[in-house]
């Protein structure tokens, strides 16, 4: 037992490669055999990943999903921000610059529209649930933008810890729903070309959600959506504790 523990712990990233490879294989097998390819293999893999993350979180009580299980610690590195950003940038290789320029304006508009819409929807829900102080309403609204904008805004304007936690949870729900839901709505919202992918990335904004949602829909669209999505959180952190907080304060 000691021998296994030593080897697996020392080579945690390698364990993660092998484990994810296995998950991908199982997912594509299920996709081909049980759904006749109707549900994308990567969509199944992402769903399995989320299930594993839930199990890992409940079992370990940690915050990093399955990466908190000692055997799978390498998942934390492989699925961490550094590797994610590196791979996202790599997807831009071979992208046509003129496609980007064509959708540039729509992409920029969608980033601002996305932050505003998510914020006000989140804030409205907070009000509907009985919150009446500007600080809490702003923080929960910011959480509906992304789970990073929530705590950044909350800490800047002095929200209570419980409210900040709630805002993170709202952002997580959003991110997970975008991951799982995108392939199912892609057709009906016209998500099948670079332009709509850039708009999609700008509107949704959660980098993880967009990254996984597009991967499960059509990997060719990933670079376009990711490009706009990566500006979203920054813009959200900019607007949340400033303009948006002032607007909410003026109302409540």
């Amino acid at each position: 037992m000691d021998v296994i523990e030593t080897v697996f712990l020392r080579n945690s990233l390698i364990v993660a490669f092998a484990f994810i490879g296995l998950v991908m294989w199982v997912s594509y097998f299920v996709s081909n055999r049980l759904t006749a390819g109707r549900i994308h293999g990567s969509a199944i893999a992402i769903a399995l990943g989320l299930l594993a993350a839930y199990w890992g979180g409940v079992r370990s009580g940690g915050q990093s999903g399955v990466a908190d299980i000692w055997l799978l610690g390498g998942i934390g590195l492989l699925g961490g921000g550094m590797m994610r950003d590196f791979a996202i940038v790599a997807t831009a290789f071979g992208v046509n610059f003129s496609e980007l320029k064509k959708a540039g304006l729509a992409g920029i508009v969608s980033i601002f529209a996305g932050v505003l819409v998510s914020f006000f929807v989140g804030a409205a829900v907070a009000v509907a649930f009985g919150y009446s102080d500007a600080v809490s309403i702003t923080t929960i609204g910011a959480g509906a933008v992304t789970y990073i904008v929530g705590p950044v805004t909350g800490e800047a304007i002095g929200a209570a810890d419980a409210v900040i936690t709630l805002s993170v949870a709202a952002g997580l729900v959003k991110s997970i729903l975008v991951m799982v839901g995108t392939p199912f709505v892609a057709k009906s919202i016209g998500l099948d070309n670079p332009q709509s992918a850039m708009v999609f990335g700008g509107l949704m904004g959660t980098t993880s959600g967009v990254a996984a949602g597009l991967a499960a829909t059509d990997p060719k669209l990933v670079p376009y959506g990711a490009m706009t999505a990566t500006f979203y959180t920054g813009i959200g952190c900019l607007l949340g504790p400033s303009v948006l907080f002032f607007v909410v304060s003026a109302i409540f």
Partner: peptide
């Protein structure tokens, strides 16, 4: 990219999202 995204999904704090309650879910 896709395998890395699967690993990313597997390290999300899904338990916290589920524990967030109705408000977080609705928002």
């Amino acid at each position: 990219y896709i395998p890395i995204v699967v690993a990313m999904a597997a390290k999300q704090n899904v338990a916290a999202a589920v524990d967030g309650g109705v408000l977080a879910l609705v928002a």
